[in-house]
Design a protein around this nucleic acid. Structure first.
Length: 300
DNA sequence: GACCCGTGGGG
DNA sequence: TCCCCAAGGGT
């Protein structure tokens, strides 16, 4: 039995019942789930995915609505730029691919918001192709089980893809199952903190376990605190704009954060990123991207 | 490669 | 409380 065989067998008995894994999920549904899952936990994605797919069952449905509606529907999943890119992605698929999700890796990679991981995930899970699919879970599982390391080092895309490629079964359908199985293992058993090794199909062959499960050593870089960052300010500004039914006067945005310099920087950043538009010659009113026309109507 | 980009829940 | 982290992508 190879690691892939063990993982697939384990997955068949332990896979979570997630909505985008239901039979009949379209490539678009797979793509939407993968984008939503970029840095957002499964439990919060599930209901959002259902609502999104009900409202926009195809790329063309989404492309017909303005980006502002995508940003609103995104709700509090975080990183709202993903909503905007998903909208741009839908528009690009309508323009370049007749409204269908392409099955070619290169064409997928060329779409907005679709990077190395997501392109491979869609080609593999939506179309059954044989590609290594490497996310943070896979990197951790391979680091421990194969390399004997306590955790994955910094992402090195090419090397990570090579490492996983060597573990993939030859047959494409099994290769796809192996990839999803490794991801699932990393998500619910071989977790970053407190791995559940007794439940792991690799427990007896895991290189990390066999070497005594050493703890990680060395200094870990402390990420920036969230409180007080531009990201928090952007979140507060966008929260106001999401719920607005018309143009929001600058004065109302001024109320969300006292530091004027930081507030202005955050707002300018949102405009630069295309999430927000300024209205009027004085740029004294703001709307979500794509709402300018509607806003003008409401002005009259 | 470093850094920026939201949000919420668990330990 | 505080810290960590969660199916990354773009610059």
């Amino acid at each position: 039995m190879t690691l892939a065989d063990d993982a697939i067998q384990w997955y068949d008995r332990n896979a979570r019942d997630l909505p985008w894994r239901e039979p009949g999920t379209t490539p678009w549904g797979v793509l939407v789930s993968e984008v939503m899952l970029q840095q957002t936990p499964v439990v919060r994605v599930a209901p959002a995915w259902q609502a999104w797919m009900t409202r926009w069952p195809t790329p063309a449905d989404l492309a017909q609505d303005p980006p502002s509606e995508a940003i609103r529907m995104w709700g509090r999943l975080g990183y709202p730029r993903r909503a905007m890119r998903l909208h741009a992605c839908a528009a690009a698929m309508v323009e370049r691919h007749g409204g269908r999700v392409p099955d070619d890796l290169t064409e997928l990679l060329a779409l907005p918001g679709i990077g190395t991981y997501t392109a491979r995930a869609v080609a593999t899970f939506a179309y059954g192709q044989r590609h290594p699919v490497v996310d943070t879970n896979v990197r951790r599982v391979v680091a421990r089980a194969v390399e004997g390391a306590p955790d994955a080092g910094p992402a090195t895309t090419a090397a990570d893809l090579t490492a996983m490629a060597e573990l993939l079964p030859a047959e494409s359908d099994r290769a796809a199952r192996a990839s999803i199985a490794f991801m699932e293992l990393g998500a619910i058993v071989c977790t970053a903190r407190s791995p559940r090794c007794p439940e792991c199909p690799f427990v007896s062959v895991c290189a990390w376990r066999l070497s005594g499960a050493p703890a990680a050593s060395g200094p870990t870089r402390r990420p920036q605190r969230y409180a007080g960052t531009d990201r928090q300010v952007r979140g507060l500004l966008l929260e106001v704009l999401r719920h607005a039914t018309g143009p929001v006067p600058r004065q109302r945005l001024d109320a969300v954060w006292t530091d004027e310099v930081q507030r202005a920087r955050a707002l300018a950043g949102l405009v630069d990123d295309g999430l927000v538009e300024a209205l009027g010659s004085d740029a004294d009113r703001f709307v979500l991207a794509g709402d300018a026309d509607r806003a003008d109507v409401q002005q009259l």
